[in-house]
Every structure is written in C-alpha cells, then in structure tokens.
Design a binder for these strands. Sequence first.
DNA 1: CTGAAAGCGCTTACAG
DNA 2: CTGAAAGCGCTTACAG
Lengths: 333, 333
Amino acid sequence: MKTLSIKDIAVKAGVSITTVSFIINGKAKEKSISEAVIKKVEKIIKESGYKPNQIARSLRTGNSNIIGLIIEDISNSFFSRIARLIEDKAYKKGYKIIYSSTENNVEKAKELINMFKSRKVDGYIISPTKGIEEDIQVLLSDNKPVILFDRNLSDIDTHYVGADHFKASYQSIESFIKNGKGKIALVTTDIDVEQIIERFEGYKKALIDHDIPYNDELVLKIHFNQDEAETIEQMKSLFSSKDIDAVLFATNYLAISGLKALKQLNKKIGDELSVIAYDDHEVFELHTPSISAVQQPLEEIAETVIQLILNQLSSKNKLENQKVIIPAKLIER
Amino acid sequence: MKTLSIKDIAVKAGVSITTVSFIINGKAKEKSISEAVIKKVEKIIKESGYKPNQIARSLRTGNSNIIGLIIEDISNSFFSRIARLIEDKAYKKGYKIIYSSTENNVEKAKELINMFKSRKVDGYIISPTKGIEEDIQVLLSDNKPVILFDRNLSDIDTHYVGADHFKASYQSIESFIKNGKGKIALVTTDIDVEQIIERFEGYKKALIDHDIPYNDELVLKIHFNQDEAETIEQMKSLFSSKDIDAVLFATNYLAISGLKALKQLNKKIGDELSVIAYDDHEVFELHTPSISAVQQPLEEIAETVIQLILNQLSSKNKLENQKVIIPAKLIER
DNA sequence: CTGAAAGCGCTTACAG
DNA sequence: CTGAAAGCGCTTACAG
C-alpha cells in the first residue's frame, strides 16, 4: 500500500492541496476556509489515516519539532534518568527528543552535532565534552537554541543548567569534619571538566576553612577509561596504606568500585571509615550499611532545561542567557 | 551564515549539480567523471565544509540511514545498556539510532511508531508492548525490517531475539532445590507479556518436575504501576506470614524492592532464605551478602539484533524470519 | 472563499 | 565525459 500524500487527499476531497495544507496546519479559520470544506477534508483525513510526511515538511519549513539531546553515556543512570525526564516533558509540549551518546569522545560528539544539524533539529540539549566549543559556537551563530547541562563550558555564552558541585562537595567534607573526621580522602577522575574540578575545589576549600592542611597523597585521580580491576587495585592501595578515616567519591561509579575495594579489604564502613558518594545510586541505599550520597536534583534540572529550551524555541528573538545553578542535596544515611 | 547547498558547490566548481551529486555519492567512477573534476569538486567540498542536507536526501530517496529503537523505558538499566550497545554497533556500520521510551503505554508506542514512520527510518528495533500488533503488521506490509527483542509477539511473523526465560527460570528453581530448599516463592509482576509468563511457567514446571506441589499462595503478583512503598508492604506480608526458604524475583526492580523489604524485616539472606534476582544489577554483586542473579546476555542480544537488521537492510528481498533464543546465565554468588 | 505555482535541496533516468 | 530537468511532499506568497 503506497502511503498517501497531501495530493491524494486533495483529489479525494475535490479541493486544492493548498486548502488541505491550511486545514492540516490549523490555519483554516485564518484563511477563511468554509466550514463545510473543513469538515469534509477532516473526515477524509481521518478515514484514510493520512499522516503528513514530516521530512517534506522539514525540508520546506526548515524545522522539525525535534530536540537533539547529546549526553555522555546513556547507560549511566544519571543520564538515562535525566533523558527520560526530559523526554517526558518535551513530549507533553509536542516536541520529540532524539538522543545519542558521545562516550566522552570529541570526534563522536562533533559527528552527532553534524548529524543532528543535517536532520534540522530545532534545538540542542548537550552535556558537553571539552573540545566541541567551536561546534557549539557554530550552532549559536546559526541561531539555534543550545542548552548545556551537567557541565558548563565557560567560554561559551549560552544557557546552562547544573548542580552546585562546589558547594555540595564542600558540605560533604564539612559533614565529615562535624563527625570528627580529619583524615579525609578524595577519589576522583582525571577528566578535566568543570564539574569534576569544582568537586575537587570544594573538597580543598572545606579542608582549609577548617584548618586541616590539604594533603596531595589523600587525593586519588583515577584515569578515565581504565579497567575497573585496575581502579580497584589503586583504591585498595590508598585505603590500606594511608591512615584515613573518611572518603568522598567524586562519581557514583567510582564509589561503586570503591565499595568493592573495601569489601575485598574487609574494611568496615562506619565509625572506622565514613563514605560519601557523589551522585546517588540504588546501590547506596541498599548497601549494608547504607552509604550517604550527594543527590543531584534530576527533576529540577530536567524541568529547567526544558523550560529554557521551550522559551527559546517559542520566542523569535534571542533571550538573555541564563546560568542556572541548582543546589544538590547531601543525603545522610 | 547561510548553509551551503549542492548548488553553491556546483557553481563554485563550474560544474552541474548532477556531477557534484555523483561525486558525493561515490558514483564518480561509475559515471566516468574525469579525475580532474573529481579532485576539484572534492577540494571545494572539503574547504567549504559542505554537508549534504539529509532531509532533502531522505525526501528524495525515501530512506534515512536511521534505525528507530523503541524500548519500554530508557531509565531501566537493562534497556539503557542494550541501547548503548546497539547504538555503538549500528554506528560502526554507518547507521544512526534514534530511541524513545514507550513507558509500557500502548498509545505512546503507537505514536512513536508513527513518528518514526513519518521520519522515514529505515528499520525498527522494538521491545513491544501488547496492543501494537497491528501497527507492527503495517510496518511489515510496508516492507520495513522489524526486529523484536526482549519480548516476542507470537502473532507477529517477524524476527525476534531474546533470552530463554523459561529455561533460566527453571534452572534458578532447580538450583534452589539442589540446595535443599522446598518452600520457594515467586515475586513477579502482573504485566501480561510473554517473557514474564515464561518465567512463571519455568518456576511452575521446575517445581512439578521435582515433585513439589505448586502453591498459589507462594506467588505474589505485583501490580505494574504501583508505588514502591506498597510493593514493599506486600512483600513484607508474604515474607513474614508464609514459611518460605527461597524466593525468585522475576525482575530486577522487584528484587531491589524485595531486598528493601527484607532489610526492614531484619531477615537475613543466606541459609534461612535464598534469593535469586532475574536480570542482574550492580546492586546484587555489592550487596552483603551478594545476591545470585540471572544474567541476560546483553552483548549477544545486541549483536544479534544488529546483525539481523543489517542483513535485512542490505538485502532487497525479504529474508526468512528468525526467532533467536539465547540462553541466559545464572550467576551464583 | 480557494487555487496555481514556486521552491526547499537533493537524486537519477535520460539525452547528448 | 557531463548536464538539464523532473520529481520527492510539503508550505506559502500571491492572485483572483
């Protein structure tokens, strides 16, 4: 069965395709099409199951009602949950989302931007990697709305939504100190992105503000793409050789590896060693004992992102850029 | 800056757009374009950064190099991991994936199919809900490749890839019995889909084959969309009132709720109560004690799905439908 | 109140 | 070896 085109509908209804097009696009009143014609055409459309070809429409109008979402890795639960929330919210406003993962790979990120561009998506929601600043700049000078989230690119003048990583990290360390801890380690990654750096800065500042000298040896930077087995070994050597009484993990997957390391060392979490994980995960609540975690406000982040992009999309003129920083919450367990 | 079109390139190069098109599409040799012209045009394309408009190309050719992936819920780690694997593999073959979640909602599933259809995706990979049989049938009679995965629709004659749920469930129960358990409960959902039913059937058959009478009271069916708090209450009442020594959870999120319920009841997992979860999850390995789980072969499923759809896509004639059942693995911890 | 026609950016059968 | 032209299915300025 060949798919129907607007022409088929026009022929069946005995009107021009112009008339059909006006009716489909809700411009019937505005163009003063008679009530009778509207009724007739709508009936035919419904009966035949005709759906306008979106490709043709996009080619003609230059937009698509699609928002491109570019994230680091869809299999990471932080991103998949954000993606799901964004998808739901956009859907309610008549926008579809298409998403794809960069795997923290600059080349792939650039390709994705190009793919989305050639698919004429109306706007972009991106958790960026370093190295794609230029490509984003091109989108902006093309007048496409771009919302960054999770991580900011300070060189890029556009909207950004993210959690207050510095503060959350600072507060985590303060909570350790309040509980009498003083030998506080940080396990983080070596990715050079703003939100990771801020967690590190928050750690450092909190120590200094409480007169605890910063000690390089208590900070373990795990190489980004490395094997989990190796990561666990490195953590084991940190945890067993150094005299530490608390540790903040800067990402949830590091925390999970850390828990495995501690399990292997048979080191009990609790009075002896306090643990906070950055980014909550189901594992932490269920773990015995439960693990405290910094919870990013997913719902609020998703809501703000969608709000910003819809505002942009519906206004002809460029809105003033906003950098929205949302507090994260330390869940003490 | 206006985006370039094929015409701009043609003008710059002093050739026709036909020639440029042939060169872009690698048909230069075939169409015996002279080496000099090819060189010149390629140089101009590279220098100008011209990218063909995929929308126009799709409109003209009727395909898109995009595969639509429709899953139940991207925030579920089983699906997000499968999605990621499929995305990677497709990408290497020059296909892009766009995905979207149905939330187990028939209406939304139908809309997604329509959206993908009007975007002219070349093929569909679907973890289906009941109720979309007709829509899938339409795609098939439209000659679009459709691969079902995770759950089969027995009425639909197309490719399917999934784990052997019956067997995995059967083996789980056998493993309980081998370890001397006899009062074996099943916690499952009330969704009426094949893979859930098979897990139930495997449970039943294993009991009967080992001369353990099937007892309705040991099977708890949790309502699909219900609050976790309520789910936990129901489980607590099962676990505390009945005299049971083993429990199989038919999904990983049920198992997670179950672990919470057991924690609240202060019931120790181990000799007293054995637990197996269906679909592995990071939680289970880390849990104290570790939880055994049925692991679906994600990598194999993704690989098979991609293989089947690429075969379909590259062959003009319809290939014979395959139903591929891959064994799942019980990881005893 | 309604329609003929141009044009979005491509591909490709056909002609030379 | 290369190009003019039709056509994919829409939208919309213009005309009547």
